[in-house]
């Protein structure tokens, strides 16, 4: 990449102008994140001031009108839904990618990849709607009430599956040909090659995919709001309704005022912190430090 670096002997004043205006524009783009963080903190400050951070975890319940701000049930809701869906979507997504590369005849591989791409483009509100009218009644037949952690996990799984599948697909495409030829020369059958040669080679790519899908699972709002029932409680079975942090914001923001509104911004901050942690760890992995 020959970038025209700044110390090129350029005689043109327009270049100078262009460069500085581009820097100005890029600064706007770069500061949006800062703006978001600053605004979340500014809006959250009043309640952090009155109530303190600790009470968000020690209060007896979430009743903002009475000044009780316990976020833990929502945190658990987010964590349960996230863990469940990541556990199901990861193997399915990776197997999907393996199917595309090593099992499917080429007639099938292309349409299948296209299908995954389409799945990635379906808006979350459509997934949520489908979950609400199809999945929830089905679950209600097995075990009422229907809107439940299970419904949330299933919908999230379908939503984050394309992320891991496409990421794994891209990693598998980068496996050096000589690895595969080497494995073939050793007489390794297909699955033994994939398990023993391909997977170790693409480990960091797969890990990045898992991190990306986790981020998506944490941040998803509408679909999960539509199928989870939104009862503030720590679920005891997967058929219990739950409420996630994101759904909580979406549900209560419309009428929240004062400390209640500020408390919702606190949960926004918590979400943002989770995502930043994930992005940083993704970077760590992609630099290869993870495996030395």
């Amino acid at each position: 990449m020959t970038s025209l670096s700044n110390n090129t002997l350029s005689r043109w004043s327009t270049d100078e102008l262009l460069c500085w205006s581009l820097r100005g524009i890029a600064t706007i783009a770069g500061t949006i994140v800062m703006l978001i963080v600053v605004f979340l903190i500014v809006e959250a400050l009043p309640v952090l001031h009155h109530v303190g951070l600790l009470r968000f975890f020690t209060d007896p319940s979430w009743h903002p009108a009475e000044g009780l701000y316990n976020l833990t049930p929502m945190l658990w809701g987010t964590l349960f839904a996230m863990t469940g869906s990541v556990l199901i979507a990861t193997p399915l997504g990776i197997l999907s990618a393996v199917f595309c590369h090593y099992y499917a005849p080429s007639v099938l591989a292309r349409p299948y990849r296209r299908l995954i791409e389409l799945l990635a483009g379906v808006p979350s509100v459509v997934y949520g709607f489908w979950g609400l009218v199809v999945l929830v009644p089905l679950i209600a037949e097995i075990q009422p009430p229907g809107p439940s952690l299970l419904a949330g996990i299933l919908i999230l799984t379908i939503m984050i599956l394309p992320t891991i599948a496409l990421m794994a697909d891209a990693s598998l495409a980068n496996v050096p040909q000589q690895y595969l030829r080497g494995a073939a020369a050793l007489g390794l059958p297909r699955w033994a090659t994939i398990r023993g040669v391909v997977f170790p080679a693409v480990r960091s790519g797969l890990f990045t995919g898992v991190i990306l899908e986790t981020g998506r699972a944490i941040g998803e709002t509408m679909a999960i709001l539509m199928v989870c029932g939104n009862v503030v409680q720590i679920p005891s079975t997967i058929f219990d309704p739950i409420r996630t942090l994101t759904a909580n914001i979406a549900l209560e923001m419309a009428y929240a005022i004062g400390d209640h509104r500020a408390a919702l911004f606190v949960s926004g901050l918590v979400l943002l912190a989770m995502i930043v942690a994930l992005v940083v760890s993704a970077e760590w992995v992609s630099r290869g430090r993870m495996y030395g």
């Binding site: 770069g30 979340l40 919702l264 943002l272």
Partner: peptide
């Protein structure tokens, strides 16, 4: 720095954008 902050921006949940848009 710009690239890093864009990476984080790409991962920010949409509801957080909503909160920010509402406040800002």
């Amino acid at each position: 720095i710009t690239r890093r902050s864009l990476d984080i921006l790409a991962g920010v949940p949409s509801i957080v954008f909503g909160l920010f848009g509402n406040a800002f």
